[in-house]
Design a protein around this nucleic acid. Structure first.
Length: 403
DNA sequence: GTCAATTCACATGAAAGAGACCACGGTCTAGTG
DNA sequence: CTAGACCGTGGTCTCTTTCATGTGAATTGACGA
């Protein structure tokens, strides 16, 4: 590429005015000052947690609701307030927020406890110690001084799914062994059915109180968008009816406010790149597509080789002919590929799991069907829009070097 | 024609192994005074 | 004498393999009308 045009491009980029005033407010990491349309939930939460300020242990709480319904935000908001108040009054209250889904941080029993201990300023090796040893360290660390600990465990269902409910049992029981401190757990879960699968003992002690977060409706999402947009954008940058459209898109997907915000942000970015003075409705459509594409692309890129090879096999077959693919067929194809690549082929058992995992990631769709006399298998079809297929194939080709 | 038994091609579960990490304690080695 | 290098042991974690059991309906075959 010539260099001069590039400089010109940068110059014109700098000269062009940004549509954003403050982009941060649209990003998912941003914590707004209030949580609109969640007054009722926050009030309940506050009532339950209030005893904390008298240094009495509040009940354990369980928050449910789908993604983007403000669970995390409400919990963070409420606990922050408590923390602030505690600080000004010099109360020994500690709030710990942990997202159990974060890989390598809190997705196993060992790591969760280790991370908790770290929150109290004690270093714990990433691995190497027996789990009960870590428990002991954790115990002695928090019990050293008198304090009340509010433990917020986000996406707790992921944790339990991976490691079983033993941790929760231990954590809920922990108060019996502590002399000075007290721990109270706030569990947050996306899955509504989560609690019913728990061990009854855990269930009763963990969900002393429950709070359900219903999805936002389109009107509420619009409100939320409006509030954030006023901070994020300059005046008059948004086309009339844009927020409504954005809200409608998100409401269609079970009222996910996070998605609505992302949609708005990406749409604005697209508009900016196209040198538009305004974010238009067509940009929303484009953003919707882009988000989905990017998500798939990211997911695919992050997969280990064996996953990529499996996906490659499935894509190749689906290109060759119409109709759905069955496990055996995909496996045969996969085996060829992996041999060609010098990868040790995995067992069918494993590939079966890999296919299921990719189903969960939304890259492919599978359905277990029984073809009577001809057995029982998974029917596989691609969930990727055909527009991204070439890109994906390219990434897979690179990832597997050679194709 | 009807109905239960059969049978296929996997799904799904459980358990256990391999290999990468890691901490800890003991032993050995080389540098220092 | 001591700090650091270098084991061996025992632990976790992830990815797999092995072994076992489960399963839904097309097909089969016996049976009765």
């Amino acid at each position: 590429m010539e260099q001069k045009p590039l400089i010109k491009f940068f110059e014109s980029y700098m000269a062009s005015e940004s549509l954003f005033l403050d982009k941060k407010t649209l990003q998912s990491t941003y914590t707004p000052k209030g949580v609109p349309h969640r007054d009722k939930e926050i009030k309940q939460l506050a009532e339950i947690l209030a005893p904390t300020l008298k240094l009495e242990r509040p009940s354990n709480i369980f928050l449910y609701g789908k993604t983007g319904t403000g669970k995390t935000l409400s919990a963070k908001y409420t606990t922050q307030q408590i923390k602030q108040l505690a600080e000004t009054k010099n109360l020994p209250i500690k709030v710990i927020y942990l997202n159990c889904k974060l890989k390598k941080i809190a997705d196993t029993e060992y790591r969760l406890i280790a991370q908790l201990t770290r929150e109290f300023g004690k270093e714990i090796p990433a691995t190497g110690l027996p789990t009960d040893e870590v428990y002991k360290i954790f115990f002695s660390t928090i019990d050293k001084e008198k304090q009340l600990i509010l433990l917020v465990l986000d996406e707790i269902d992921q944790l339990v799914k991976k490691t079983g409910d033993e941790i929760l049992y231990n954590l809920t029981r922990i108060n019996e062994d502590l002399k000075n401190s007290q721990v109270s757990i706030i569990g947050i879960s996306n899955s509504l059915t989560f609690v019913s699968d728990l061990d009854p003992r855990v269930k009763s002690s963990l969900s002393e109180e429950e709070l359900v977060f219903p999805p936002y409706n389109a009107l509420q999402i619009k409100d939320i968008l409006k509030a954030r947009a006023s901070q994020a954008f300059k005046n008059g940058v948004l086309e009339q009816g844009l927020l409504e459209k954005c809200a409608a898109y998100a409401a269609r997907e079970h009222g996910d406010a996070r998605r609505a915000l992302e949609l708005l942000r990406v749409a604005a970015e697209i508009a900016e790149r196209e040198n538009e003075k305004q974010v238009k409705i067509k940009h929303i459509d484009e953003a919707d597509r882009k988000i989905e594409d990017d998500r798939v692309l990211e997911v695919v890129k992050a997969q280990p080789k064996q996953f990529q090879a499996t996906l490659y096999a499935i894509i190749s077959i689906s290109e060759k002919r119409k109709g759905s693919i069955i496990t055996g067929e995909a496996y045969d194809f996969y085996k060829n590929i992996s041999i060609r690549l010098g990868l040790p082929p995995l067992t069918q058992r494993r590939i079966s799991d890999i296919i299921s995992e990719q189903d969960m990631l939304g890259i492919i769709n599978t359905k277990v069907i029984s073809k009577g006399r001809y057995g029982r298998t998974k029917e596989i079809s691609l969930a990727i829009p055909s527009s991204v297929l070439p890109k994906i194939k390219k990434i897979l080709g690179e990832g597997l070097d050679l194709a």
